[in-house]
Structure formats: C-alpha cells, structure tokens
C-alpha cells in the first residue's frame, strides 16, 4: 500500500466513495422491494393455498393467512385423481424429453461432423418451427392422432412433444458439438471405437452440460403444455395442467383447491429451476446474445 501523500484529496475521494456507496445501497434496497413486489402474486397464491378454504374465497381477502390449514390440499386430492394427472404429466414429459434429446444429439452430431452449412440450415429450420403457432400444429395433429386411433393416450402426447422439441434439441446440441474438437473423435477411433461407440463413450460425456440444458427446456415445454393436452386427451391421459384448469368453475367455489393444485404443480419446478438456473440462463440467452 502507498502512504498517504495528500490527505485532503484522499478525504475527498473517500467522501465521494461513501456517497457513491450509499447511492448503490439505496438502489439495492429499491430493487429488492421492487423484486419482492413483483414476485408477490406468486407468494400470495402459496399463502392462500394454506388458508382454510372459507378464507380463500372470502370477499375481504388478506395477503397473509389468519389461520393455517391444509384443507385446500385435502379437497384437491378428494375431488379429482390429481396424482394420476401428475403421473401422466411426468411420464409424457420425461419420455418425450429422453426421445427428443437422444434423437437431437444423434442428428446434431451427424450434422456437426458433416458440414457446417447443414448446421445453418437447421438454425433456420428451428427458427421456422419456433415461428409456427402451436395451434397451427395442433389442428392437423388432432386429425392425424384421431386417424391413428391414439386420442386420449399418453403416446399421442409423447409423439407431439418430441416432434416439437427435436429441432430445438438439434440446434442446441450442434452448438455444443461444434465446440468439441474433431481430435476427440479421432483419438477414440484410434483406440478402437467405431463411430457410434465413440459418440456414446467420448462425445456424449463431454457434452453433458449441453444435454442438461436441452433436457431442461424439452421437459419444461412438455410439463407446462396445456393446449395439446386439452385437445388430445379426455380422461385416461389427462395431464396436470388440464386437471387443474377444471377447478375453475362458474361460481368460483373451488378456487381454494385450485390454488393448492397450482402450487403443487409449480413449486417443485420453481425450486428445481433455481437449482439449475445456470443451464436455464445459458439456454435462454442462446441465440440472443453472442458469446
């Protein structure tokens, strides 16, 4: 550290620093308050779900519960087979995710080692698929699934989610594979791997972060889907989103259990997404921000 050559100047800058630091603190407190205000609708739903059901639909609602109760959760379980709906959501989302990520990774590997031009074509295709409104795919899908006799089956949903997710998964994985030098494959081949086992044993393990990002987004799309589940299922394959929406009745009497269902559906995802935020951020800013 240097000695203090000029006390006055250093005092001045210290004052300035103090002021600036305070300024920063004010901005900090302001931002924290705004952020809490922003998230408060969600907190309100969580708090409402643990109110007695008469308080949940009181004409003079309070933000914080006056009394805690699990009544809404009990009603939710009694009123509909919600566990089956959640299981349907979970199986369709996970199977379609595995399929989309695996098919996507295979295709992306082929493309990235084949030529970079096809990679660009895929970027364009992914963009186009992203532009197509879901409802426009849903209309012909409904007809096709109907003809195949798959209405109200989980297979119908798995097929649909996989189809929508494959282009995205290819695009994301191409980016990752392009960053893996070709020497990796060559080294594996020299060690006696064939092309396929080199892919499975060498390339896939190094690209785990990419696979994780792709899997998170594919899973979320399927888990959160409402439109296709509403259109393609009725009883057996009904998913959680459609089930929850059925708590909305004309006279609003089931709003309490509805909040319980909405929280059960979204809170695990919220916690999970905070844990894997790194992957989500990298997936969402991909394409928008150049590295």
């Amino acid at each position: 550290m240097l000695s203090k050559p000029n006390v006055e100047v250093s005092n001045k800058s210290m004052l300035g620093r103090l002021f600036r630091k305070n300024n920063k603190n004010i901005i900090g407190i302001f931002t924290v308050v705004l952020a809490l205000l922003f998230i408060s609708p969600y907190i309100y739903i969580v708090l409402t779900s643990i109110k007695p059901s008469s308080d949940a639909i009181s004409s003079s609602p309070t933000f914080f519960p006056r009394q805690l109760s699990l009544e809404n959760y009990v009603t939710m379980f009694n009123q509909m087979p919600i566990i089956r709906y959640f299981l349907n959501s979970f199986t369709t989302a996970s199977i379609s995710t595995i399929l989309a990520v695996f098919l996507g990774a295979l295709a992306a590997y082929g493309l990235s080692r084949f030529s970079s031009k096809t990679g660009h074509a895929f970027l364009l295709l992914t963009l186009c698929v992203r532009m197509i409104p879901m409802i426009s795919i849903a209309i012909p899908m409904y007809i096709i699934i109907n003809v195949m006799g798959l209405i109200d089956t989980r297979i119908a949903l798995i097929i649909t989610y996989t189809a929508i997710n494959v282009p995205f998964s290819i695009w994301l994985m191409i980016g990752f594979f392009n960053n893996i030098p070709k020497e990796f494959d060559e080294a594996a081949r020299i060690d006696g791997c064939n092309v396929f086992s080199a892919f499975i044993k060498v390339i896939l393990p190094v690209s785990l972060p990419g696979l994780a990002t792709a899997a998170i987004f594919c899973f979320m799309l399927a888990w959160n889907d409402f439109l296709f589940a509403l259109l393609l299922t009725s009883t057996n394959a009904k998913t959680a989103t459609v089930g929850i929406s059925e708590f909305l009745t004309a006279y609003n009497l089931d709003l309490g259990p509805m909040t319980a269902a909405a929280v059960s559906f979204s809170l695990p995802i919220m916690v999970f997404s905070i844990l894997v935020q790194r992957y989500i951020v990298s997936g969402m800013t991909l394409g928008a921000v150049k590295e």
């Binding site: 998230i39 979320m220 409402f226 919220m270 997404s273 905070i274 989500i280 969402m284």
Partner: peptide
Amino acid sequence: MLAPLMIAPL
C-alpha cells in the same frame, strides 16, 4: 426475479 421464468403460462 428469475423464479417465475419457468412457471407455466397456465
């Protein structure tokens, strides 16, 4: 702020 990022539109 990022917590609602993955909440379903539903």
